[in-house]
Computed example of a mutant assay.
Amino acid sequence: MPKPWRVLDSRINYSDRYLTHRMDRCETAHGVVVEPYHVIELPNWVNMVAVTDDARVLMIEEYRHGIGEVVFGLPSGTVDPGETDPLRTAQRELAEETGAEALHWVQTGRMFPNAAVNSNTCFSFLATGARITGETSFDEAEDIETVPVPLEELYRCLLARELRMTAMHLVGLHEAGLYILTSGDPKMAELREILAPLYSPS
Results as ranks from 00 to 15, higher is better:
residue 144 I to D: 08
residue 69 E to A: 15
residue 87 L to P: 04
residue 129 G to P: 12
residue 59 M to Q: 03
residue 11 R to G: 02
residue 96 E to K: 13
residue 171 V to Y: 04
residue 59 M to N: 04
residue 45 W to T: 15
residue 116 A to R: 14
residue 172 G to Y: 02
residue 178 L to T: 09
residue 26 C to V: 02
residue 145 E to N: 07
residue 26 C to E: 10
residue 153 E to G: 02
residue 41 E to F: 15
residue 166 T to F: 03
residue 63 Y to D: 08
residue 182 T to R: 15
residue 197 P to S: 04
residue 52 T to M: 04
residue 112 F to H: 07
residue 99 G to P: 10
residue 78 T to S: 13
residue 4 P to C: 08
residue 92 R to W: 01
residue 60 I to N: 05
residue 41 E to C: 13
residue 121 T to A: 10
residue 111 M to R: 05
residue 154 L to C: 08
residue 111 M to H: 05
residue 18 Y to K: 03
residue 61 E to L: 01
residue 73 G to C: 08
residue 10 S to T: 11
residue 175 E to V: 00
residue 76 S to L: 02
residue 75 P to C: 05
residue 112 F to Y: 03
residue 51 V to P: 03
residue 133 T to S: 11
residue 35 E to D: 15
residue 4 P to W: 14
residue 172 G to T: 03
residue 31 G to N: 02
residue 131 R to M: 12
residue 19 L to C: 00
residue 187 K to I: 13
residue 180 I to A: 13
residue 27 E to N: 08
residue 187 K to Q: 15
residue 58 L to E: 07
residue 177 G to W: 09
residue 22 R to K: 08
residue 50 A to E: 06
residue 133 T to G: 08
residue 139 D to H: 12
residue 89 T to E: 01
residue 185 D to R: 05
residue 136 T to W: 02
residue 195 L to R: 07
residue 153 E to A: 14
residue 55 A to G: 04
residue 103 L to M: 09
residue 179 Y to M: 15
residue 144 I to N: 06
residue 156 R to S: 15
residue 58 L to C: 12
residue 200 S to H: 06
residue 101 E to T: 10
residue 14 Y to A: 05
residue 167 A to R: 07
residue 61 E to R: 14
residue 171 V to R: 00
residue 87 L to T: 01
residue 81 P to L: 06
residue 147 V to I: 15
residue 185 D to Q: 08
residue 78 T to W: 00
residue 183 S to W: 12
residue 24 D to Q: 00
residue 113 P to Y: 06
residue 7 V to F: 14
residue 164 R to V: 01
residue 33 V to W: 04
residue 170 L to Y: 03
residue 117 V to F: 12
residue 187 K to D: 11
residue 108 T to Y: 06
residue 5 W to F: 15
residue 158 L to W: 09
residue 160 A to I: 00
